[in-house]
């Protein structure tokens, strides 16, 4: 069985009389280690679909299964556990915590999954937090923000905020990474750098699953699988011989 399966998933929003179908019967399978590109125009339901897979929202109808866990029927409590253990999210709207600096925003996520420390080492609190700090700054460095560690979100440019959000998701080293428009506010050079990092996480090296939502057609070749959404329906779903991020250009 595939790692992620969606069967006839629907999400409706009721607005008085009218019903908006953000997702209208989506069925798909995603294998472990795949890099999936979800592509579609604005309002197609990409974010909504991602929320379903990430356990951030539940469908109105249909079934979502991840690692044979029926996500769509989990209680709020177990959904939390699921998100903690398996998922990393890059939000379309970044959603940084404004009271925390870039570094602290990333630490906050690492804190959650914890760090492995050698039990024979000094396992003191300060030691642990030092490790977390190092790890957080390592990831911020990776996305090119080594010199912006202590900026608050309001003191960062749009693209920089986006990269903090990416670093935060990556730092959790999740089994499934969900990235909503991760390059929307990034220039080509940095954007490609980010995609390279994500590519490295997949089957090719670490066997994690990465799902990237985008409206940029130029990114599509990167995916093992491309899913095209329109008006809440899957209009295209194909696997392909992927092109390495290094070779992308837009």
């Amino acid at each position: 069985m595939a790692l992620i399966t969606l069967r006839d998933v629907q999400k409706e929003y009721r607005l008085g009389e009218t019903i908006t179908k953000a997702l209208n019967g989506v069925s798909l399978d995603i294998e472990k280690g795949e890099l999936v590109i979800i592509y579609g125009p604005s309002g197609a339901g990409k974010t909504t679909l991602m929320n379903m897979i990430g356990g951030l929202d539940i469908p109105t109808a249909g079934k979502v299964t991840v690692s044979e866990i029926p996500i769509s029927t989990l209680s709020a409590k177990w959904l939390t556990v699921y998100r903690r253990k398996k998922i990393g999210v890059v939000f379309q709207f970044f959603n940084l915590i404004s009271r925390l600096t870039a570094l602290e925003n990333v630490e906050y996520a690492i804190e959650l999954v914890g760090v492995r420390t050698n039990p024979r080492d000094e396992s003191s609190v300060s030691f642990r937090s030092k490790i977390i700090r190092e790890k957080a700054s390592e990831y911020l460095d990776k996305v090119g923000l080594g010199d912006r560690l202590h900026h608050f979100p309001a003191q960062l440019s749009g693209g920089e905020q986006q990269r903090v959000s990416i670093a935060r998701a990556l730092a959790k080293e999740p089994e499934i990474l969900l990235a909503d428009e991760p390059t929307g506010n990034l220039d080509f050079k940095i954007g490609r750098q980010i995609l390279e990092i994500m590519e490295a996480m997949t089957g090719k090296e670490q066997n994690r699953t990465v799902i990237i939502v985008t409206h940029n057609e130029a990114i599509c070749p990167l995916g093992d699988r491309v899913i095209r959404l329109s008006d809440g329906e899957v209009v295209e779903n194909y696997t392909q011989e992927y092109v390495s991020a290094k070779d992308l250009y837009w």
Partner: peptide, 15 residues
């Protein structure tokens, strides 16, 4: 609420 939402999304439990 959004801080809370983010924490929840990251996997912090309601409790």
């Amino acid at each position: 609420r959004k801080d809370i939402g983010v924490s929840q999304a990251l996997g912090y439990s309601r409790n």
